[in-house]
Nucleic acid binder design. Sequence first.
RNA 1: CGGGGUAUAGCGCAGUUGGUAGCGUGCCACGUUCGGGACGUGGAGGCCGUGGGUUCGAGUCCCGCUACCCCGACCA
Length: 492
Amino acid sequence: MSKVITPQKEDYSKWYNDIVVEADLADHSAVRGCMVIKPSGYAIWEKMQQTLDRMFKETGHVNAYFPIFIPKSLFEAEEKNAEGFAKECAVVTHYRLKSDPMNKGKLIVDPEARLEEELIVRPTSEAIIWNTYRGWIQSYRDLPILVNQWANVVRWEMRTRLFLRTAEFLWQEGHTAHATREDAIQETEKMLDLYADFAENWLAMPVIKGIKTPNERFAGAEETYCIEALMQDGKALQAGTSHFLGQNFAKAFDVKFAAKDGKLDFVWATSWGVSTRLMGALIMSHSDDKGLVIPPKLAPTQVVIVPIYKSPEGLEKIRKSVEPLMTILRGKQLSVKFDDRDNQRPGWKFAEYELKGVPLRIAIGERDLENGTCEIARRDLLSKETVNLSDAANMIPDLLETMQNTLLAKAKERMQNMTYRCDTYDEFKRLLDEKGGFILAHWDGTAETEEKIKEETKATIRCIPLNNTLEQGQCIYSGKPSTQRVLFARAY
RNA sequence: CGGGGUAUAGCGCAGUUGGUAGCGUGCCACGUUCGGGACGUGGAGGCCGUGGGUUCGAGUCCCGCUACCCCGACCA
């Protein structure tokens, strides 16, 4: 098994740094745990963003934007939500600084400039959005509202992990309002399916769809649906969530609508989101010892052409010879880069593009010019073949598609091989320690058992898989009867 | 907030019994190279985290402080 790229593992810091670096630690210790995403990394996020955005719009959603600050009084309106997030909120208390009379050149917070009401930096936007929706909704004719927001949020975690749990992260959060319970549940499930589709077909990352146990449920939700992925090291990662919020927020913010029959009722709600955590998921799903492997459909650069030449004239000859190829590929909406940098040697470039995960690399030298050939290298298999330059234009789109499929197939196989069924607690513990991965086991349905298992093994119930087959069994911990297996794993 | 560790060049590190700082890499210049992270020569770059103390002399020994990392507690 190839090694897994784990954020903050020293071995990988060198190349991991090429995608992202953390905030300057020495000078900005206060933003420890925040990300600085370099352009090469951000380009991947942009690609995810564009794709998701298109998918949202195809399903009738529109984008909007709401404030980053939430007045404390609004934040506390939905009690469970407030309680759940209270421990990790950044709070704005003042709006002005002034020169420090005791310390020239320094600033202090102006005590005169205290805000009457503290502002919470959004850890999630339900509160401010539902407070706004109250003014948008009066009749069933105003529903549904299918709004998405691309934003940053802040959660002051005690311990952060690059991409997987950063103090500030980028995400999208959908917030929808519906006339009926059924509509809202349908929306929740629809968006979960959309996420699963995106994970599989774009990230090439298979996921298990399921619902969270009450313990793991989003604060303020009636039901939390999730997609769970399995990383190469056998640890699970929650890759996206979709919440059925019931009427909780409508009640907290008094959002009612008049139905067809004239009766007033509270609005039904959903919210759903995925974040820059998907970058972590992408990295940990496919990377190998040579660096990042990006599925072709998400790769900012899909094909790179590296000329091998000895003189400026040689370079120009090669440039001319590949121009038709580049034109054809670009005509097929592929992103192609011709790397004519003179300050790095070919071998260096090969290694660099492998590090960055560019799916296909074409090397072409003067020797090839004579033969009318070029060398195509696949990032996923690290394989190379020499082909006729004239055939390349036809082969490349197929190759990219094959790569995309191969990556998914490989990941699927890995997940399958790392999913175990087990019926005893001893076996359960042994599997966790020796193999990791997903474990399907019976659970008595109580929070106590769930917590005990977590305490003793660090494994959590990732989800109760949707469309689970029902079967009689006994809880691995308590021995009490159970009707279905749930998905356990140690998780990030 | 507990337990452990670290702090020396942009990055990664070494630095012996205390004697005034070095290696790798990266950077700059020139030349030779260019089909898997080239090589040669020359060069720039460090108040050794910070404040005290011991000493003729401290990167090194002692005390304080600070910051960061790892493990835990926490984690829609």
